[in-house]
Design a protein around this nucleic acid. Structure first.
Length: 388
DNA sequence: ATACTAATAT
DNA sequence: GATATTAGTA
């Protein structure tokens, strides 16, 4: 009942293509429910006119990964504690597009300079992932970036060498995840050791003490964030306004009490939304000012919400309407995402955590930029934070 | 003693 | 070619 107990409103379900047991709108998603490869916009990297990412193991239907089997370590479960990894040979890790995306996001957060195996691994927080796994992948990724850089910046024609068909084929995986712009810049910005990449769109929330106003500089970086110790504005009813498209009255639901580790906590206040806008998204969106959809990945770096790292992809300008937050976990064994919590946020309203146990999860947020005044709030493990 | 990286092995 | 493993260093 604890973990797999995600509440999904009809609206969100539609948005994410999540099958919901009939007759029970906000019922929990059963563990074995369909995985949503293509379901969650936030999860897949498939672009509208593109085929879905490579699907992991063919046997995804089996229930082995989800719990039970003592070996692999359950994806997000409460985990049995044995870790015979020592003498046992772990199966070769397969870097799925999902995993790679997570990897890239982590690297982006850290900044290429600070991105080293151990740190990346921690940020990724993927069950079963080892430092060696990451180191190996990183090595290859660096080579990839190097090549890209050669083709990109350096004088065109002769300098970097042509892009062989072999390379294209080889870099298939890497192509599945967008390479952050600054990755390719040579002589990039020098950053103080330990300090987060200034140019990074991602910033540790913990570092932000006060509400920050949007400054020109920030806009340039295109991110705004804010950290809240807790929400106090009980704006209201606790019911979300459906028509956020109407922009009429938004609801105030904010209430959001800190949800401690108490189980069975909050629940989605209500329903929601025309989240239809989430149908598919991905970072492919871009540019426009309104109607944009973006994927946001938040990395929890610790058990405390205050340690969570938050980031916006460049180009995301806040106002938006609202956001739907999808929380899932990934494990090397199962390589499947599992919804753990789903929340809805309305402009000026805040989300409510549905499940206190975040453990090693990642937050994928599909964000729709629409109106001009709104905010995203995320609440977890007793802490809360919001982005403006 | 740890962990990063390059080199090499499977 | 994709990962894993080893070896040399910082």
């Amino acid at each position: 009942m604890p973990l797999s107990q995600s509440l999904i409103t009809p609206g969100l379900a539609v948005a994410f293509d999540i099958p919901i047991p009939a007759g029970n709108p906000s019922s929990a998603v059963s563990p074995h429910h369909h995985h949503f490869h293509r379901a969650g916009p936030a999860l897949t990297s498939a672009s509208p006119n593109h085929p879905p990412p490579l699907l992991p193991p063919p046997d995804f239907e089996s229930s082995d990964l989800n719990s039970a089997s003592g070996s692999g370590g359950g994806g997000g479960g409460s985990g049995a504690g044995d870790e015979p990894a020592r003498t046992l040979k772990r199966p070769r890790l397969v870097w799925t597009p999902q995993l790679h995306k997570r990897f890239v996001d982590a690297v982006a957060h850290l900044g290429i300079k600070n991105a080293v195996p151990k740190t990346i691994m921690q940020l990724m927080s993927v069950d079963g992932l080892t430092r060696e796994n990451v180191a190996s992948h990183l090595q290859k990724y660096r080579l990839y970036l190097r090549r890209m850089q050669g083709h990109n910046a350096s004088g065109g024609a002769g300098s970097g060498g042509p892009i062989s068909a072999a390379d294209a084929a080889t870099d298939q995986l890497f192509a599945s995840a967008p390479v952050p712009h600054h990755f390719l810049s040579r002589g990039g910005p020098v950053t103080a050791p330990g300090a987060p990449e200034p140019f990074l769109p991602y910033v540790p929330v913990a570092a932000l003490q006060h509400h920050q106003q949007i400054t020109a500089a920030m806009q340039q970086q295109q991110y705004h964030q804010r950290h809240l110790g807790q929400f106090g504005s009980p704006t209201g009813s606790g019911v979300f306004d459906h028509g956020f498209l109407n922009r009429a009255a938004v609801s105030p639901s904010g209430i959001h009490q800190m949800i401690g580790p108490a189980p069975g906590m909050g629940l989605l206040q209500h329903t929601a939304s025309p989240a239809a806008n989430f149908s598919d998204d991905l970072e492919t969106s871009g540019r426009g000012s309104s109607g944009e959809k973006k994927v946001l990945t938040l990395f929890p770096t610790g058990r405390s919400a205050l340690d969570i790292w938050v980031g916006f992809s460049p180009n995301i300008c806040m106002p938006f309407v609202l956001v739907s937050v999808l929380i899932s976990s990934l494990s090397t064994t199962g390589a499947e995402w599992k919804i753990q919590r789903l929340s809805l946020v309305l402009r000026k309203g805040f989300v409510r955590s549905l499940d206190p146990d975040l453990g090693d999860c990642i937050f994928e947020c599909g964000m729709v930029v629409d109106s001009e005044d709104s905010a995203l709030g995320i609440d977890l493990d007793g802490g809360a934070m919001a982005l403006h």
